[in-house]
Nucleic acid binder design. Structure first.
Length: 818
RNA sequence: GCCGGAGUGGCGGAAUUGGUAGACGCGCGCGACUCAAAAUCGCGUGCCGCAAGGCGUUGAGGGUUCGAGUCCCUCCUCCGGCACCA
């Protein structure tokens, strides 16, 4: 008897699947579409790592399971190929990013094929190719046309090392997401996409999504809706009006000063000359600080008075106007009114000797310390010294004061969002060029659609200089002048790669339709998607993605951009759905000795050696057996042996013990098999691959002990195994004379009758302690069971006296209380 | 600081609506095969006991219940996210 040798078997079946085009979906004809998607990888030059496998293999197992359940699976794979690493590599080694990317994609495809996933390679996308990025640019034009793309000068996050701007999401902790360099603020004229227009819809849409609650919550926080009041303060001696957003208008009467962000536009207009020196110096000081320094919470708050005064809208008092960098320019209106009921205002006022006036007291308890300004009370309470609102509770006061302000024309109820418009410009080479040209007056014009793809020029230096490398392309300038006229210049910035990945799921489907049409025998059919982002009928059928699997790190980036783009496309009339991803699941992280695997730490585990020795089936099953796939886990290579043994045992048992002459299994075997069908099905539905595997192991343990296995049972077992160990299952299926591919077989159903055994084991408890296990007939009544329980010797020992309570849980246990 | 999630053997982890905690696997121990080792197979693996049986137990403490890993309260620890958001 030969042991199972995966190397030959796995390549044999990978070839056979490929030859039969077993995984090419016909998206136009499919009846029960199921779009099984994983987040596409970046094609780095490195080998596939454990993290890739941990994402792709279980996702593929899910797809295979759904296929056997009768769905038409579409499972594409592609490459998010634009981005900094290829460009940095180009800078270092002088190889063009395109050549470098091509090489990486080719090796990555080879490696991906070894996993043995059901990828429909006909549908592949590569975001760095003109046939793809023409759609990235097309999307920009759509946004531009509807004024959702706009250019503005704004202080932006700038990474001095990468020499480019970053979206807020890419500079979250004040450092560059890629290189960790502290980010600085720099005023630049940049392209933005108006995601803020969709804030409320992005928020509302979350309720209907089958996503992890945690991810939804993160998006809710990111969108950051808050309802409050905009209060208008006139500036003394000017016609200027300062608008201030607050959620605590109940403390309005306690306002003794107002604070502007240093870069608030009013500062220049209202600061009297004699204060300008100090104000200017403070603003310059702020500019020099990095985002990290500026937002350091432990830092003592600083500020300077502007010398201007604002008129309190309710009392008419004059209150001083300060600037301070704890007030953020980009939230609310970039200004706050300060009072005694906010920790920051309280501390700031004490530091600079600004008077405070408490107007709120707790509903109960001693408010002495608050009145004496020894304590800062920030909760809701009861108002005093607040004019006609005195005596009201905070919540009530907020409503009444807002209404009063509205009547007086001094304020209104408003909703604020924390989310900011999406900065899509990048001063880098390796990205999709923004399809905009400027006339000699500097006015931007969209590049007409017939000129798409607006090609990325190749005659450039890659060194980042802070300006877009495209600026140095002679061809790019010449092309623009030739098409649009003398003095016209192209936009030199490229797009954030998150734009590329915001709609790729649509292009997969379009590609698949196109290639299928192209590969059909005559008469040639013109693919419906050839000149469209996607055919509307096919979009309606395949969207939203049925299952989207990828890492949680994209919660507030890719996953929010893609939702925004999908909503916009629907509004533009190119799609019929609001949401791109119906169900979302995050795989967990695989760590090594508790630490995140990274190249710089040198603790990356390469799957290669394990694949060579054990094969893809064993490796992917081991990853799935480690624990729940949403949890991730710490890598250890000792346990893989267990799966290897399991595979060998399956092989041995099914090649030695199958008796084709028998069609009736021993009862134990039959029960074990049907128990396995039930449990594997439940586990697969829940994506609990670890328990699916253990159910198969338990079943095998029983089958091994029996004297023989019927062909039927063997084939059913192989079908249960097929999504988890696809190659092994095909080989066994063929060996036992199965027709076609096992992956085309239906998923087995269990027979509940076979799950019921003749007898049942009942646990007997006395006063909550287990005293016996008794065997009774499966048909025994409550009285039978109770009688049998009382007759048990050990139970008798403890059953001293008449039970005050007799509990019987059918089929499970008896509990006596005495 | 705020918001989430999680704490179960030596290890990874199982456990329907509250119903035999520790399935399955790793590791370890003993045995078989072998000149030997590896591989494989068998048995064992919370504690005490030859056994029958007894006892303990799911981060800590308390509560509800005939019965709690599961429900409620208090606390501890770890992980993830947000963080001057007015």
């Amino acid at each position: 008897m030969q042991s199972y040798d995966p190397s030959g078997v796995e390549s044999k079946w990978q070839e056979a699947w490929g030859k039969a085009r077993a995984y090419s979906a016909d998206v136009a004809k499919a009846k029960k579409p199921y779009y099984n998607l994983v987040m596409f990888p970046y094609p780095s030059g490195d080998r596939l790592h454990v993290g890739h496998w941990y994402n792709f293999a279980p996702a593929d197992t899910h797809g295979r399971y759904m296929r056997m359940k009768g769905y038409d699976i579409f499972e594409p794979m592609g490459f998010d190929a634009f981005g900094l690493p290829a460009e940095n590599h180009a800078v270092k080694n002088g190889v063009h990013p395109d050549a470098f990317t091509d090489k990486n994609v080719a090796t990555m495809i080879k490696q991906l094929k070894r996993i043995g996933c059901m990828y429909d390679w006909d549908a592949m996308v590569n975001t760095s190719k003109p046939e793809y990025y023409r759609w990235t640019q097309w999307l920009f034009l759509q946004m531009f046309q509807r004024k959702l793309a706009y250019k503005k000068e704004a202080p932006v996050n700038w990474c001095p090392s990468c020499q480019t701007v970053l979206a807020r999401e890419q500079a979250q902790d004040g450092t560059c997401e890629r290189c960790g360099t502290p980010v600085i603020q720099k005023p630049l004229n940049q392209w933005f996409w108006k995601i803020t227009d969709y804030a409320q819809r992005l928020l509302d849409g979350l309720d209907g999504l089958d996503w992890p609650e945690k991810t939804k919550l993160m998006q809710r926080n990111w969108i950051g809706r808050s309802e409050g009041t905009e209060v208008h303060f006139a500036i003394d001696g000017t016609t200027e009006v300062l608008k201030i957003f607050t959620t605590r208008v109940d403390t309005l009467f306690g306002c003794t000063f107002v604070v502007l962000a240093p870069d608030h536009p009013l500062v220049e207009k209202i600061t009297p000359k004699n204060h300008w020196g100090a104000v200017h110096a403070y603003r310059e000081e702020t500019k020099k600080k990095t985002e990290l320094q500026r937002t350091d919470l432990n830092k003592e708050k600083t500020g300077v008075p502007t010398g201007a005064f604002a008129i309190h809208p309710a009392t008419g008092e004059k209150v001083p106007v300060w600037i301070a960098d704890f007030v953020l320019a980009h939230y609310g209106t970039g200004a706050v009114f300060a009072d005694a009921h906010d920790e920051r205002d309280f501390a700031f006022a004490k530091k600079y000797g600004i008077p405070l006036k408490p107007t709120l007291k707790p509903e109960s308890g001693d408010d002495g310390p608050v009145r004496r300004l020894e304590e800062c009370f920030t909760g809701d309470g009861v108002l005093y010294d607040s004019g006609q609102f005195t005596g009201l509770h905070s919540a009530e006061a907020r409503k009444k004061i807002t209404a009063w302000l509205e009547d007086e024309g001094k304020g209104r109820n408003v909703v604020q969002y924390r989310i900011r418009d999406w900065l899509v410009s990048r001063q880098r080479y390796w990205g999709a060029p923004i399809p905009v040209v400027y006339d000699p007056q500097g006015k931007p014009h969209p590049v007409p659609e017939e000129h798409l793809p607006w090609l990325l020029p190749t005659d450039v230096e890659f060194k980042p200089t802070g300006e877009s490398p495209l600026k140095h392309s002679a061809e790019f300038k010449a092309r623009t002048e030739k098409l649009f006229g003398k003095g016209w210049t192209p936009e030199y910035d490229t797009m954030d790669t998150f734009v590329c990945s915001s709609f790729y799921y649509l292009r997969y489907v379009a590609n698949s339709e196109q290639r299928t049409a192209n590969s059909e025998k005559k008469p040639a059919r013109v693919p419906r998607t050839a000149y469209r982002l996607i055919d509307p009928e096919i979009e309606r059928k395949w969207m939203p993605v049925s299952m989207y699997i990828g890492g949680p790190e994209h919660a507030c980036m890719h996953l929010i951009y893609a939702r925004f783009v999908m909503m916009a496309l629907k509004d533009f009339g190119f799609a019929s759905h609001d949401e791109p991803f119906k169900k979302l699941v995050h795989q967990g992280f695989i760590t090594n000795k508790g630490a995140k695997m990274s190249k710089s730490k040198g603790n990356v585990v390469s799957p290669d050696a394990f694949i060579d020795r054990h094969g893809s089936d064993v490796f992917r099953m081991y990853l799935m057996f480690m624990g729940p796939f949403t949890d991730g886990g710490d890598w250890s290579d000792t346990g893989i042996k267990g799966i290897d043994r399991f595979v060998q045992r399956v092989w041995r048992t099914l090649s030695e013990k199958v008796n084709k002459k028998v069609d009736q299994d021993e009862p134990a075997s039959a029960r074990a098999l049907h128990e396995a069908i039930k449990r594997v099905t439940e586990s697969m539905d829940a994506l609990h691959f670890n328990t699916a595997i253990s159910a198969l192991m338990e079943c095998l343990n029983v089958l091994e002990k029996g004297s023989g296995i019927s062909l039927m049972t063997a084939q059913t077992y192989i079908r249960l195994l097929a999504p988890l160990a696809p190659h092994l299952a095909e080989e066994l299926w063929e060996m036992l004379g199965g027709k076609g591919f096992v992956i085309d077989q239906p998923w087995p159903a269990f027979d509940p009758v076979l799950l019921v055994s003749e007898s049942m084991t009942i646990v007997v408890q006395v006063n909550g302690k287990v005293r016996a296990n008794i065997e009774v007939s499966a048909r025994a009544s409550k009285d039978d069971v109770l009688t049998a329980a009382k007759e048990n010797e050990n139970v008798k020992k403890y059953l001293t006296g008449t039970p005050t309570k007799e509990i019987y849980v059918p089929g499970k246990l008896v509990s006596f209380v005495i």
